[in-house]
Design a protein around this nucleic acid. Structure first.
Lengths: 229, 229
DNA sequence: TTATCAATAAATTTAGAAAATTTGGCACAG
DNA sequence: CTGTGCCAAATTTTCTAAATTTATTGATAA
């Protein structure tokens, strides 16, 4: 019995590529997504493409105008603020529940992923550093959230994360990962781990909220510099 | 110049019909959704159908297995409990924010929709009663939630509601709307309005949670009677 | 200018071909 | 007899390419 990667259909791979390109800013907000161009670019025909685009509409990364095709979803300061606020609120709720419901295995996984994140200095090239750090950072936060033990709340968290990621990417691009910045983050995470293990719900929710909101001023600057309101 | 309903494409109408039929239990959980049957039933061809199905996968009402088509998403007691728990938690969070952020217009709309809901006795036939009550009930809860002033939190609420509705339909079917049951609900809603207008956050969140969780035991009974665990 | 209508471009749908999976039968070993 | 593995037929999913419908543009006439 083999367990190779299940062969995906073209709609799914087109969806992944398109999503990646939109999040990375390859297409500008409000840019029209011509069927003909996309067909050429991703090497698929209208069927799978249409399927991918309608998924991206559900993700709110693309908007559809009936009979007039698709556009990249607009970006705005209002949406930036709302997304980050909603995320901070939801993540706070999930953290409260996790502290209430999390068991020993949960505590262990929080500690383990925190440790892995703290030890991310050794890698050589800047690109590898950033990729590696981001990966472990996500793993750390996911480990914390998973303590809430609710698949549906975690699913909502993922959906919101997809929506935030286009804005978050602007922050990652802007923030060159200096050793100092890395150290500050490490301290924030350590403090978070402390209050979580101490089961101090209110303090934990506050710290988490502050930690998540941090990038907003920087992203605001980038957006206004690009003439986006 | 005419102003009839803006012409929707076939994918969207197929999506609406299919979703309606799944929520109303026209297809059993885990039932295979044959392209050929669906094409015939909804009078559209594979392209739009596939688009509709992939939307329903995003809604978690359908599951897709690559190269092996689509099935109606399974139902289980575990999912029932998780969905209702997640919903109660999210609705509690939104209510807290609404009480914190809601303005005079919000208070007015809560009062107005509550009044409209309380006056729903006069209608004649049972079907009309149930449909009318459910519509006004949704409007009442939506009015409360909208005070949180966060499009993204409200969007998450809608998504979760779509997922809950298949379970909720079992409750509506089971609960014949007796005048007594209606009266109990009316009292619950009145109490909710009171604590909301009094801006008693904690009490309001508790009442809301209790109010939302009510149907779970009844739905549990229906599911176990159908041999679903 | 404003309106109308053809010409063009684009989105949407369909029908059928290609790829993959399941089904059913048959030979063969236990 | 019963169970297992394999092959081909039938079913089903998935994709493409072409046809159809719908919107936009630009020229012409009111």
């Amino acid at each position: 019995m083999e367990h190779d990667a299940p062969r995906q259909n073209l709609a799914i791979s087109a969806y992944r590529e398109l999503k990646h390109d939109i999040i990375r800013g390859r297409y500008a907000p409000e840019e029209k997504l011509l069927m003909s161009r996309l067909k050429e670019r991703y090497g698929v025909s209208t069927g799978p493409l249409r399927e991918a685009l309608s998924q991206l509409v559900a993700d709110r990364l693309v908007v559809a105008i009936s009979q007039r095709g698709y556009r990249v979803a607009p970006m705005s300061l209002a949406e930036l603020n709302d997304i980050y606020d909603a995320r901070a609120q939801l993540e706070g709720l999930i953290l409260r529940l996790a502290i209430e419901r999390g068991d020993d295995d949960w505590e262990a996984s929080v500690l383990a992923t925190a440790h892995r994140l703290a030890k991310v200095t050794d890698i050589s090239s800047p690109d590898e550093l950033l990729d590696g750090w981001d990966l472990r950072h996500k793993a750390f936060h996911t480990a914390i959230a998973s303590g809430c033990n609710s698949p549906h709340l975690l699913q909502m968290r993922n959906t919101l994360f997809d929506q935030v990621e286009r804005y978050r990417h602007l922050w990652l691009q802007e923030t060159v990962m200096s050793p100092q910045a890395l150290d500050i983050k490490r301290q924030e995470h350590a403090a978070l781990v402390d209050v979580i293990l101490a089961r101090d719900t209110d303090q934990a929710a506050n710290l988490m909220r502050d930690h998540l909101i941090t990038p907003v001023p920087i992203i605001t600057r980038v957006l206004t510099a690009r003439g986006i309101n």
